[in-house]
Design a protein around this nucleic acid. Structure first.
Length: 282
DNA sequence: CAAGAATCCTGAATGC
DNA sequence: TGCATTCAGGATTCTT
């Protein structure tokens, strides 16, 4: 499930590929990708032949590939892949977009579960309108927890769920929310409104550490995720709690507890993340 | 406005 | 072995 580190790894791969030949052909599958109404007006023809790819930017879990005054917005959803190759390679099932460049290279978007999204729009509009305009701050740029506190601190919802809200902080998904809460020693089901300012600082720092580590490891591959070269990441071996319910806590040895909340699985250490023991909770 | 539920989808994993 | 069922989960939309 691609979250910020996986999307960042894909972006780095795209940049490294130095796709600077003119765009020669755009092919789009008939199948609809499903991710809200904003994506229904996919207008991929608006990427003109001859356009030259410029900056590849990431915002939260979104990729924004600029082609001058037009940009391509990509969301990987659950199972989306952006793969760089050549035009004559076999086309995988569930390929939804092929961008062929004049040097015979091709970028493909493959997404079996079709939770992903594609859209072309005026570059400036794209940044000013939803979904990008709705996003909270970039977590790696946080200096303190103040922004998180401000955006999530009034909510009675569980901390884990608040971190998944892209309006609170952009790019954090279930894996890294659970990992960051463990690192911050905060119980995932604690109501967000109960945290003191100092705890938001701890949480912001933990989020940054967890994300940065995963980027260094090329992202987490449980099943679907691949980078732009088609390779798996290795951060799944660096996770402290996610996917380890019933196993021993790496810090204290207690048996990690799995839970399901809001139809999303999670894990915590009942000792390290005890609700009652947290000093940062009122 | 906030919060929970429903929704979209396919492949892997599980059950019998 | 084979078929049917269950589940996973991001972001939006709908409902309460």
């Amino acid at each position: 499930m691609p979250e910020l580190p996986e999307v960042e790894s894909v972006c780095r791969g795209l940049r490294q590929a130095r796709l600077v030949a003119p765009l020669q052909q755009v092919w789009r599958s008939e199948l609809a990708l499903r991710i809200g109404k904003e994506w229904q007006h996919e207008n991929l023809e608006a990427l003109p032949r001859g356009a030259i790819g410029q900056a590849v930017a990431r915002r939260g879990k979104y990729i924004v590939w600029s082609f001058g005054d037009r940009s391509l917005l990509i969301h990987l959803g659950m199972s989306g892949r952006v793969l760089v190759g050549t035009y004559d390679e076999p086309v995988l099932a569930h390929t939804h977009l092929r961008l062929r460049f004049a040097d015979d290279r091709e970028v493909r978007f493959v997404d079996p579960r079709r939770f992903g999204g594609l859209k072309v729009d005026d570059t400036q509009k794209l940044w000013e309108q939803p979904p990008l305009s709705r996003l909270g701050p970039e977590p790696l740029e946080l200096q303190t927890g103040a922004a998180l506190h401000e955006r999530g601190g009034r909510s009675k919802r569980a901390l884990r769920d608040v971190l998944l809200d892209q309006r609170v902080v952009a790019g954090v998904g279930n894996i890294y929310a659970v990992e960051a809460l463990f690192e911050a020693r905060l119980h995932p089901l604690l109501p967000a409104a109960r945290l003191r300012a100092s705890a938001w600082d701890r949480l912001a720092a933990a989020i940054k550490r967890v994300l940065a580590r995963s980027i260094d490891n090329g992202g987490t591959t449980f099943r679907d995720y691949r980078n732009a070269e088609g390779r798996e990441g290795s951060n799944q071996f660096a996770l402290a709690v996610y996917g380890r319910a019933g196993e021993a806590c790496l810090v204290c040895g207690a048996s990690l507890v799995g839970f399901v909340h809001q139809a999303r699985s999670g894990v915590y250490c009942p000792s390290c993340q005890a609700r009652s023991r947290a000093r940062w909770v009122r």
